[in-house]
Amino acid sequence: MTTPLAFVLAAFAEIAGCFAFWAVVRNGASALWLAPGVASLIAFAWLLTFVDAQAAGRAFAAYGGVYVAASLAWLWAVEGFRPDRWDLIGGVICVVGAAVVVFGPRG
């Protein structure tokens, strides 16, 4: 699995898992939402192990940028709120930062 694909899949797994908890606590959804939420969070952690990085901390740091961009996509696709220009600018900055962390030359 390629690093970009692992990051994207991990991001949506994490967001889905966190959203399940949000739905229960904040939106009054059934506690049954927690089971797929936990499974999704386990999938998120497993997917990050496919990232091609020498150290977990570097993989996690780079993932943060992808998570921001994926969260904005979730905001629009699932929650129905269209990101504004500041959301999009911030997302691009985060993804560029993630790319620098992952693909930057190492000495």
Rank of each mutant, 00 (worst) to 15 (best):
M1N: 07
M1H: 11
T2P: 00
T3P: 03
P4K: 04
P4H: 06
L5R: 09
L5I: 14
A6G: 04
F7H: 11
F7K: 02
F7Y: 14
V8Q: 07
L9Q: 08
A10G: 05
A11E: 05
A11L: 03
F12V: 15
E14C: 05
E14A: 00
I15A: 06
A16L: 13
A16R: 07
A16G: 04
G17V: 00
F19Q: 05
W22H: 06
W22Q: 06
W22M: 09
W22V: 07
A23Y: 07
A23R: 07
V24R: 06
V24K: 07
V24W: 08
A29N: 08
A29L: 12
A29G: 05
A29T: 09
S30N: 08
S30W: 11
S30V: 08
W33Q: 08
P36N: 08
G37S: 07
V38R: 03
L41V: 00
L41M: 09
A43V: 13
A43D: 09
F44E: 01
A45I: 01
W46A: 03
W46L: 12
W46T: 02
L47W: 02
L48N: 01
L48P: 00
V51C: 06
V51F: 00
D52Y: 02
A53W: 10
A53C: 02
Q54I: 06
Q54G: 04
A55R: 11
A55P: 00
G57D: 10
G57H: 10
R58A: 03
R58Y: 09
A59M: 04
A59V: 05
A59Y: 02
A61V: 12
A62P: 01
A62S: 12
Y63F: 12
G64S: 13
G64Q: 11
G64V: 15
G64W: 15
G65P: 03
V66P: 03
Y67L: 11
V68Q: 00
V68Y: 05
V68F: 08
A69W: 08
A70L: 06
A70R: 04
A70S: 06
S71M: 15
L72W: 09
A73Y: 13
W74A: 06
W74I: 11
L75R: 06
W76A: 09
E79F: 14
F81T: 10
R82D: 10
R82Y: 14
R82V: 15
R82Q: 14
P83L: 15
P83W: 15
D84V: 00
R85N: 10
R85G: 04
R85S: 12
W86V: 14
D87L: 06
D87R: 03
L88I: 12
I89A: 11
I89W: 14
I89H: 07
G90C: 05
G90V: 05
G91D: 14
G91I: 15
V92N: 13
C94Y: 10
C94Q: 09
V95C: 13
V96W: 03
A98F: 15
A99S: 13
V100Q: 13
V102L: 15
V102G: 02
F103G: 01
G104N: 14
P105W: 13
R106D: 03
R106A: 10
G107R: 15
